[in-house]
Simulated assay, not measured.
Amino acid sequence: MAVTVGSFDGVHLGHADVIRRTVAAAGQADAQPALITFEPHPRCVLDPANCPQSITTLQEKLTLLEAAGIEHAIVLTFDRALSSLSPSEFVDRLKAVMDLRRWVVGFDFAFGRQRAGNSEWLRSNGFEVDVVPPFTFEGKSLHSSDIRRLAGRARAAEGDFIAALSVGYRPTFGGTQLRVEGFLLDFEGDLYQRRLELRFLKYLHPDIRFDTPADLVQQLKRDVADTRRIVQPLAK
């Protein structure tokens, strides 16, 4: 197996780069591409007060991973027992069920108790390791936690709509929970408690804490105008 490990929440462009390199590494090593992920998110166990709300459900994530070329997606239940494993213990458990030929990991990858394992640890223990550099999008490194205000599209049973999208904490109102919100342009109706498919097409700006709700409303109007300007030509 050529394997990569991580949460992969949202399966964004940075994740896609790691997955693409994993699939390529598998081809070079005459192996199969595999990905190990966790449920729940490790931070929800290690730091419950800052547990992030998932951008995608587990099933959505697995569907996206399969579409990206991952042949084996292994979901490990993340709990205190798993977090207490040393790097050697964690790797030994993997070796017991798969032939680990090559690792593909991010530049800041760490694993095992107290994050004692990393790419250098893997190399020192005889593994071939590819380290993926930071993925930059419009001049900045991309992480799941960096996805904030975006232009995109929303698909519902009623059709496919241009949407101004937000993944953030609502800092103007003192929010502490990650929320995913969408404002559908040219749509009238009630979609609360309905399932939507969202596609992120363009990053607009990070979360901003405004002094007043009125300032927030003005920014939302600018976001809607920018979203229409960016997304509408793509539909033609």
Rank of each mutant, 00 (worst) to 15 (best):
R101E: 12
R194Q: 13
Q218V: 05
D79A: 12
W103V: 03
G106Q: 12
A16I: 14
R199P: 09
R149C: 14
F109T: 05
I162K: 08
K236L: 15
R179K: 06
G175Q: 01
N50S: 12
P134I: 15
T22W: 03
A31W: 12
L165F: 06
G117E: 02
Y169W: 13
G139K: 00
Y203Q: 03
D211R: 12
W121V: 02
D160V: 02
L13N: 04
G69W: 01
L122C: 06
V129W: 09
K221E: 07
L196S: 03
A73S: 15
G126L: 00
R155E: 11
G126M: 01
C44V: 15
S84R: 09
L234R: 07
T227C: 04
G69V: 03
R194F: 06
E128T: 07
Q59N: 11
D9Q: 03
A81G: 10
F8C: 12
G112T: 14
A235P: 05
S141M: 09
K61F: 06
L65H: 15
G14R: 03
S144L: 01
A25Q: 02
R102Y: 04
A96G: 00
L64S: 07
A24N: 02
K236V: 15
R80C: 05
K221F: 05
D47K: 13
L94A: 00
T57H: 13
L122Y: 09
T227Y: 05
V131Q: 11
Q193K: 09
G6E: 01
P233E: 11
T56D: 08
R209H: 06
R229Q: 04
K61W: 13
R123N: 07
L204K: 08
P40Q: 01
R20E: 10
P213F: 02
K140Q: 10
C51V: 13
V131F: 09
A16F: 04
